[in-house]
Design a protein around this nucleic acid. Sequence first.
DNA 1: CTGAAAGCGCTTACAG
DNA 2: CTGAAAGCGCTTACAG
Lengths: 335, 335
Amino acid sequence: MKAKSHISGGHAASASDVARRAGVSRSAVSRTFTDGASVSPDTRAKVLRAAEELHYHVNFLARGLSKQESRPVCILVSNLHKPYHAQLLDHITTALQKAQRISIIINVGDDPAAASGALEQTLNYRASATIVLSGAPPAHMVRRCVELGQSVILVNRADDLPDVRHISIDYETAMRTAVQMFMRAGCRNIALVSRAVRTPSLLAREEFFTQYLSEQGITLQIWRGASTTYETGQHAMRELLVGLHPPDGVFFINDLMACGGIDTARREFKRRLPEDLCILGFDDIAQAAWSGYDLTTFAQPYSEIADAVVQNLSNAAPARLTLTARPVWRGTMRS
Amino acid sequence: MKAKSHISGGHAASASDVARRAGVSRSAVSRTFTDGASVSPDTRAKVLRAAEELHYHVNFLARGLSKQESRPVCILVSNLHKPYHAQLLDHITTALQKAQRISIIINVGDDPAAASGALEQTLNYRASATIVLSGAPPAHMVRRCVELGQSVILVNRADDLPDVRHISIDYETAMRTAVQMFMRAGCRNIALVSRAVRTPSLLAREEFFTQYLSEQGITLQIWRGASTTYETGQHAMRELLVGLHPPDGVFFINDLMACGGIDTARREFKRRLPEDLCILGFDDIAQAAWSGYDLTTFAQPYSEIADAVVQNLSNAAPARLTLTARPVWRGTMRS
DNA sequence: CTGAAAGCGCTTACAG
DNA sequence: CTGAAAGCGCTTACAG
């Protein structure tokens, strides 16, 4: 009966309702649902019983108003349709969920202006932290948020901002290894496929790769496209293979472009991989492991990143954490 | 100076702070930031000025406490690493964002038990609605949430629950077309690849396809795997092609499995598509358009679904909306 | 262990 | 148009 009328009323039960029915104070109810608070087993039982009967659920948003720790976490993400971003978000939301955090997701576009707006919006949620997975928001916007008291965690942005937590990749080591891989494979005419507008993390890959390769005295041609999509990868491969100096090794700055490059090299130009051409990617997206690609690449430490994000929330991680991306040997690189 | 001290204080400015500095009441501040509220241009200007100086941002969570409409929306999603789910989430979060809604994301696993817990958790946020993108939460849990006053929107679950809003696909029409496609292609020995544990939406595809095919008097073999992954698609294709009656047409219940099937058919069994074998998928994930797959499939109406979700929030859409998935002709089906 | 009270940051009738 | 007041649903010192 009671439950039924409550339902049609449409209003969810509040702590007061529970207190009344259990014959205790609001405080007692609150304590029952707070870990480590002191309630006698007896009143606890009474509260639990009443709560059950009224289908009471603590209102997390109201709780967040008085209690710092249960405030939500904002995740700024873009390009969710791309495998790398989706996989990263998957890991991070799962980890946050395990840590009892609530995730608010803000889907910003690739556009820096839109991203700035979104980052600013973050302040409206009084989130305990904002996690930036997108390369889009420009550094000055991140700085502004920090100045306004936001705690910001930057994932895989190789820039270096003060008072901001960074979780990034040791691109220096990874790129040294990448160059060695091409050397050992016997490639002497290498191309790097990147994007014209570079996020800090793309820039880091590009610069270290270029640097280490130049130490080997090897020819490097750099091709830059408008985006980092599959189609751009195809486009790049086409231009490289009909160019004056078709490469014998191509490093795509991300796996998504590499997939496009592979399909074009094989289908349009009948190249055999890795015999005629070696290809290396970065990210280890799911498709890299598909037999149609079998792409040699570097694995983003997805789970480690997710764990680090969670630890950063409670300041349990160093403000500047560098993880390593390990090579994943598959079939597109001679070894 | 002022800004600086505020920053080091670490506390964000509240409406009271702004009111004090502007020399007006809290109400005036509130009204300034509420669309359509009545404030004189003069006080409005004073408030805006003070807000600017104090870097004031309305606390959305606190606002949600008193104002129904600005309560968040919960999105229950699973398998974010899979393209279909990621693409759908991308569209929906973008649409919600445009509609000024805040999205809380709950990443449930494939496991019905975990999904139930997550759905129940939803009640803790007093969300104005819960959008279920995952097939995982069982019907009785959905019903329970509705009974407790939650407004639930089911996306692409072909089940039929009372008092729940549904956005689904007209599988009947789609599957009739699918059968016609196979007929016209001259396939007479068809296989259907599905999953053992079927969500309502997989079940609908399977049943309508089976029904229409049987009307044609064609042999159909059904293969069911443990999951709907790329690897399962490979596995299915292997067993079908070494089986007693290798099919000349295969309908994969989703694109992801179809990709695995294509790679296996081409690489391991040297089948030419569509000459030796026709393949049809469902979802139109990004990879279906990649030249390595060029998969003929049915397109989920991603944007329409997202729009419908938003309209459902304000009850501007019918409680039961059926959208159509149109065939996308590519290279894996003779026409 | 427990309750009354103040506080978190907002909105919205209610009078004026 | 404007302000004082009550309310949204919680938590947390403070006394007892």
